[in-house]
Design a protein around this nucleic acid. Structure first.
Length: 555
RNA sequence: GUCCCAAUAGCUCAGCUGGAUAGAGCAACAGCCUUCUAAGCUGUAGGUCGUAGGUUCGAAUCCUACUUGGGACACCA
């Protein structure tokens, strides 16, 4: 348990004890203790609504109950300096602040570990995200999914979950066949042959490039090969090419995966038939009009869905069910899928599949990522200037940098649309939250360097010297971090961490302007403040790392 | 027509699973550099939380209906 948690646990424990010894309620009647940090400093460091919650049970008015609780509360057991009743029956706690001093040394001991939960939860979570078709390049929608997915994984990992990141490669469908024919055509054209592109083939310049490359490397050896062999070859080269581009984009975007799962492997292992067989055994499959249907309506879907079309081929749903069965067979407790907003209509049928396979409907969680709108010069940019198509991850990365992109894409709740202002993301000013936060980190670095140069640096630390208002604010903010990580993980809300980094930076700048750290006349206080600065620096780094943003030493 | 998401300050958004006088940033206005990075700080102003009901000690938060915006409703992936 970290310090903030310990402190809160002590207070909660003492509240329960006080309620019991005041005879207000029996053990079972006491509701879960709600302890919150009031927004308004006037209301102290913590507050509880216990008295209001007990109003019905104890049949007394809340203020009277609050008085009883305070009377039986042992302040010394929970580092409380003062308690008071406020409003309709809140009990406000003011801490004696000595507990905050411990925080600095504990952060400096834990280093990268500060904010991370000590033990594991023993819960295995798989997060599948991005999973773009390997037929083209990643665009902005994928980029936001990647940024949020990676941040969520980092955060959940820090909060003690066992997290695995997976990319599902759709390498079996008809779009890959289309890709193969497109590569083939470009290859033939590069050899100077007349060869028409397939209808609605992939027209992008990268395929033209690939065709040329293949023609150079392999000369005309495939022009002579059998159609089947040739097709298989171009399918593979096309796939390998598209995938390697995607991998490169993602790794430059600092988004690693543990597993790249191939759809084709499901066919090779007959997993799709096996999955359908499971549904059949449960009598959830029927034939109609030459097609095979899955009774998703049994689980609340609007209509049943087709698994096998009347031409004998699978719909996308069939391999998807097999894929999710495969995931479940691997023993994950929870599957999290991160999907673009345009896929939200598939949630009911996938949830139906999960239940049909014998798992609870909460086993699958789908996080929907809303769309991104780009803005430049105050106007909405829809199309890429270069390609005339949707703006790619690569283009924006080149334009604004990874840090800005990672931060901006994760800074808003994923279920609200994101307006991405290119000018703001590039601007080196206080309006740009990324620069604002990174600047705080760089500022501290400079102070620490100067402290050493001026011989003011020492390992002495005396928390009782940190009493300025801005120092206390800063300390309290530092203490919140583990709880923020926990909340962000449990609620799947990575934007809380970006928000936190911003708030911490804000406290730092505010402190910086109000108090002087390096002061030769007060060496003891200077030394203690330096330690505080190191703790802030560490916490900023840790928070930024969770969302994939670098913390520069100098700017 | 059905379903999902959103609606909070002029703009972009938070609001921690129901709490006190709803918060930030930008924009506006007024200030702060002979001092550790002004890429910063301080202050002022700005609100019928889309509308109407309901649930209860208490609602931006939960429920219902409606309005507006976006998206989804294939034997396409």
């Amino acid at each position: 348990m970290n310090i903030a948690e310990k402190t809160e646990a002590k207070i909660k424990e003492e509240i329960v004890r006080a309620v019991k010894s005041a005879g207000l309620a029996s053990e079972e009647e006491i509701p879960g203790v709600v302890l919150e940090q009031p927004k308004d400093k006037q209301h102290g460091d913590y507050a509880t609504n216990m008295a209001m919650q007990l109003a019905r049970v104890a049949k007394k008015n809340p203020r009277q109950i609050a008085e009883d609780i305070i009377e039986h509360f042992d302040k010394s057991k929970a580092s409380i300096e003062e308690m008071e009743i406020a409003g309709p029956g809140f009990i406000n706690f003011r801490m004696d602040n000595t507990y905050l001093a411990e925080l600095v040394s504990s952060i400096l001991e834990e280093k990268e570990g500060y904010g991370k939960r000590e033990g594991k939860r023993g819960e295995r979570i798989q997060v599948e995200f991005v999973s773009a078709n390997p037929t083209g390049t990643l665009h902005l929608g994928h980029a936001r999914g990647a940024a949020i997915g990676d941040a969520l994984c980092n955060i959940m990992d820090a909060a003690g979950y066992d997290v695995e990141r997976e990319y599902y490669i759709n390498d079996a469908g008809s779009q890959i066949t289309k890709l193969a024919y497109s590569v083939e055509a470009r290859y033939m054209q590069a050899l100077g042959k007349e060869w028409a592109m397939p209808e609605d083939g992939y027209q992008g310049p990268d395929i033209v490039e690939l065709g040329k490359q293949l023609a150079e490397e392999e000369a005309d050896k495939w022009a002579e090969a059998s159609e089947q062999e040739r097709h298989r070859h171009f399918r593979q080269s096309g796939l390998r090419y598209a995938l390697s581009k995607i991998e490169k984009d993602l790794s430059d975007f600092r988004v690693p995966f543990d597993e790249w799962f191939s759809e084709t492997s499901l066919y090779e292992e007959n997993s799709i038939e096996a999955a359908i067989e499971v549904l059949k055994e449960k009598d959830l499959v029927y034939e109609e009009e030459g097609a095979t249907w899955f009774k998703t309506t049994e689980y609340g879907d609007d209509k049943d869905r087709v698994l096998v079309k009347n031409d004998g081929t699978y719909t996308y749903l069939a391999p998807d069910i097999a894929y999710h069965k495969n995931k479940l067979d691997r023993g994950f407790d929870t599957l999290i899928n991160i999907w673009g907003a345009d896929h939200h209509g598939y949630i009911p049928r996938m949830t139906a599949a999960i239940q049909a396979l014998g798992y609870g409907k909460d086993t699958l969680e789908v996080e929907i990522i809303q769309m991104v709108n780009l803005f430049q010069n105050g106007e909405k940019v829809k199309m890429s200037k270069r390609t005339g198509k949707a703006v790619t991850l690569r283009e924006l990365m080149d334009e604004v940098g990874v840090d800005a992109m990672r931060y901006f894409f994760a800074m808003r709740s994923s279920d609200s649309h994101l307006d991405f202002d290119i000018d703001l993301a590039r601007s080196e000013s206080n309006e740009n939250p990324v620069y604002y936060i990174q600047y705080a980190h760089a500022r501290i670095t400079t102070m620490l360097q100067q402290a050493k140069e001026k011989g003011l640096y020492s390992d002495e630390f005396d928390g009782s010297l940190l009493t300025a208002e801005k120092e206390i604010d800063l300390l309290k903010r530092l203490g919140e971090f583990p709880q923020i990580v926990e909340d962000a993980a449990v609620n799947r809300t990575p934007h809380r961490v970006t928000q936190y980094a911003f708030d911490l930076a804000s406290n730092l700048h505010s402190f910086y302007n109000a108090e002087k750290v390096l002061d030769a006349e007060h060496p003891a206080r200077t030394a203690s403040r330096i330690k505080l600065m190191e703790a802030v620096k560490q916490t900023l780094r840790n928070a930024l790392a969770l969302v994939g943003v670098e913390a520069p030493e100098k700017m």
